[in-house]
Design a protein around this nucleic acid. Structure first.
Lengths: 115, 115
DNA sequence: CGTATTCATTGACATCTGTCGATGGATTAC
DNA sequence: GTAATCCATCGACAGATGTCAATGAATACG
C-alpha cells in the first residue's frame, strides 16, 4: 500500500527539508527562516498559544488584546505577521475577526527540526 | 582546581513547554522566542545545516566561511548567536574553532511545536 | 439616519539587527 | 624571533522591527 501524504499548501509547507538533511541552499533557508522569524517574538508566541488554547480553536482580536498589555494596533500587526507566515488563518464574521491555527503548520515545522 | 560546571543552562534546554499546551506566560514566551529568533535568519539556518552535515558533526569557521558569501566577521557573529541560543557548541583546538550541534537541542525545540 | 464597536492600516519613532572593514589576540610555521 | 593563519571583537552604518497614537473602513445597533 502506498502512503498518503496530506498536502497543506501554505508557506509553512514549503519548508519541509529537514535542517539536518544536508546543506541547505539559500532559497530554502530564506523560506524556512521566514517562518522561524515569525515565531521569534514573545508576543507572537503567546498569540499562537492563546489561539491554540481557545474554544473551537479560534479567537477574536478583542479576546487576545485583553490578555496582552499592548495596543490593539500592535496586536493586529503581530497577527498579520503570523497569517503572512502561514501559521494562522483569519476569518471575518460580522465585525469580528477570528484567528485559527493553520492545520499542520506547526507539525510541518517540527519535522524540519528532526534529526 | 577549578570548580566543575556541568550545568548547561541554555535557552534551548529551558523551552520545553509546548506552544499548544495552554496560554504561555511572558517569561516562557521570551525564552522560547529567543531560540526561534536565532533560527530566523537564512545564514544561521544554513550554518546549522552545514555543521550537521559535516564530518564528525563539527566544522571550523574556515570551512563555513568559504561556502557563504559573507565576511569572516559576519560568519563569526552568526555562529556566536547560535552558541548563545544553545544550539551550537564551540570547541577551540589549536588555531581552529570547531562548532557542533548541541545534542538534543533541535529535537527539544521540535517538541514545543507538537500538537 | 446616526452612533458605537471591531479591527486593519498608516505614520512616526526608538531600538534592534545584519553587514562590513579593521583590529588584535592566540597559535602555528618558518 | 618573525611571519602567517585563524578567528573573535569592535565601531560604524543602513535597514528592519516593535510599538504607539491616530485614522479609517466595515458592520451592528438604536
Amino acid at each position: 500500500m502506498s502512503a498518503v501524504l496530506p498536502v497543506i499548501d501554505t508557506a509553512a509547507s514549503a519548508c519541509c527539508s529537514p535542517i539536518t538533511g544536508g546543506v541547505m541552499d539559500a532559497d530554502e533557508a530564506s523560506t524556512l527562516a521566514a517562518t522561524f522569524k515569525a515565531m521569534g517574538d514573545p508576543t507572537r508566541l503567546r498569540l499562537l498559544s492563546m489561539v491554540a488554547a481557545s474554544d473551537n480553536g479560534e479567537a477574536c482580536v478583542c479576546d487576545l488584546n485583553e490578555l496582552l498589555d499592548l495596543s490593539q494596533g500592535t496586536v493586529s500587526h503581530h497577527l498579520g505577521q503570523l497569517v503572512k507566515a502561514g501559521l494562522l488563518t483569519r476569518t471575518k464574521r460580522g465585525t469580528w475577526s477570528y484567528y485559527a491555527l493553520v492545520p499542520g503548520a506547526l507539525p510541518a515545522l517540527a519535522d524540519t527540526l528532526r534529526v
